[in-house]
């Protein structure tokens, strides 16, 4: 597959994730949409690392694999972040009895 196809898939993924994060009212759906956006970014990173590796650095493995290393890091951090986010969702559910994001507006006024 070409770089363009990779980037288009990544953009589509990202846009779907963004739409879900901004439009869905269910907190869990929003969290999942955020995951989609992470993955879109990861895909971009890996694709860039594969197709646009800096010239003259092919022999230097650490330089060539920067994108992939980033992607692995992001997956790790995203896992931790989801754990945190789910914690907040639990707390929210316990307090309000719902997982509707539009109901959570205590900071207004």
């Amino acid at each position: 597959m070409s770089l363009e196809a990779m980037l288009i898939i990544s953009a589509v993924l990202f846009t779907i994730g963004l739409y879900g994060a901004l439009a869905r009212r269910n907190v869990l759906a929003v969290l999942m949409s955020i995951e989609l956006m992470f993955n879109a970014v990861n895909l971009t990173l890996v694709a860039m690392a594969k197709y646009v590796a800096p010239a003259g650095l092919e022999e230097n493995l650490s330089a060539v694999l920067t994108g992939q290393v980033f992607a692995v890091f992001i997956i790790t951090v995203a896992a931790a972040e989801i754990a945190l986010g789910l914690g907040i969702v639990f707390a929210m559910y316990r307090n309000t009895g719902s997982v509707d994001l539009t109901q959570v507006a205590e900071l207004r006024n």
């Binding site: 959570v104 507006a105 207004r108």
Partner: peptide, 14 residues
């Protein structure tokens, strides 16, 4: 404009 709605802010940021 300060609705308190997270998603409204998110839209504005986007």
């Amino acid at each position: 404009l300060q609705t308190g709605q997270v998603q409204a802010y998110g839209t504005a940021i986007a």
